[in-house]
Design a protein around this nucleic acid. Structure first.
Lengths: 160, 160
DNA sequence: TATTGTTATACTCTATAACTATA
DNA sequence: TATAGTTATAGAGTATAACAATA
């Protein structure tokens, strides 16, 4: 007998987001299996290539990881000659993170692999909906990101 | 100096999904702080109350957790008198998971708290977009869930 | 005194393996 | 022989604390 769950709680936004996110991450783990740090390695490399990473801490917060974890991730990526740490002349405590030439070249093929994964993820939607979905995700994420404290009501200064 | 990241890679779907998901989970962890298992405890309770949980394994797969983890979660929820394990008469290896009376009552208040969190999450969208977003999330999650192997191309039988 | 980055340590979460009982 | 569930163990991932360098 097939022990299907039938209709359990598929109308739950949390279940939907969780299912999408888990599958997306699992697919990215396969796709970026040869990259130090996996999917997070890609995000780090992408950010480094943009030339806008003023410090490890800022990057860590943007990615939602601890600064100590960022140290380990950057160690691995530096060993793989994908990124470099450069002391910020304005603040010699901080390290600017930049992509090496090799890192930038690597990024090109990684991006095309990412495009494939995202195309498969969004395949059930028609083209206009795909664009709407991306727009909505960006809007929601940007608003949340700018709040720092996730989903906290205004005036609530408590940490997570 | 404010070490802002400016525009790093906010056009990345992965970053958007990750940011939304992390914030959503963090908010749910606060909201369900007093519930065994936190957000997953809620999902288990919600499924149990639906009366459609034919086995612990089916529930575990639906939630994307290992069956051993499900054992621990159910232990905690049973100790809190929220759910019961009932041997399935059709297959005495399996346990049907049902909510107790206390669990069903608890679920009512938990649902209203969840509604508050989701309302805050989706606040940046106008009402029609909120409904569209929910619909798209459900569609994508359902399609992925039915594939079992996340985002695998057709004909690829390899496990994750 | 506060902040960035590093390192060592401890903790949490999850998966693996072995087992019992059912099919 | 294969599957559902449990338990103990091991592993991966993460956070905590202490430190040096700089602001």
């Amino acid at each position: 007998m097939d022990a299907t769950c039938g209709e359990l709680f598929s109308d739950d936004l949390g279940w939907g987001l969780g299912t999408i996110f888990r599958s997306y991450v699992a697919a990215l783990n396969e796709t970026f299996i040869d990259l130090p740090g996996g999917p997070r390695g890609f995000q780090i490399l992408s950010a480094a290539a943009s030339g806008n990473v003023s410090s490890q801490l800022a990057l860590a917060q943007h990615l939602g990881v601890d600064r100590t974890v960022m140290t380990y991730l950057l160690d691995d990526m530096q060993r793989a000659h994908l990124i470099e740490r450069r002391p910020d002349p304005q603040d010699r405590r901080a390290r600017r993170i930049v992509a090496t030439r090799e890192g930038e070249e690597r990024l090109l093929t990684l991006r095309s692999r990412l495009d494939d994964v995202e195309a498969r993820l969004l395949a059930p939607l028609d083209e206009p909906d795909r664009e709407s979905f991306r727009k909505m995700v960006q809007l929601l994420a940007t608003r949340i990101d700018s709040l720092q404290i996730p989903l906290a009501p205004c005036g609530d200064g408590s940490a997570i």
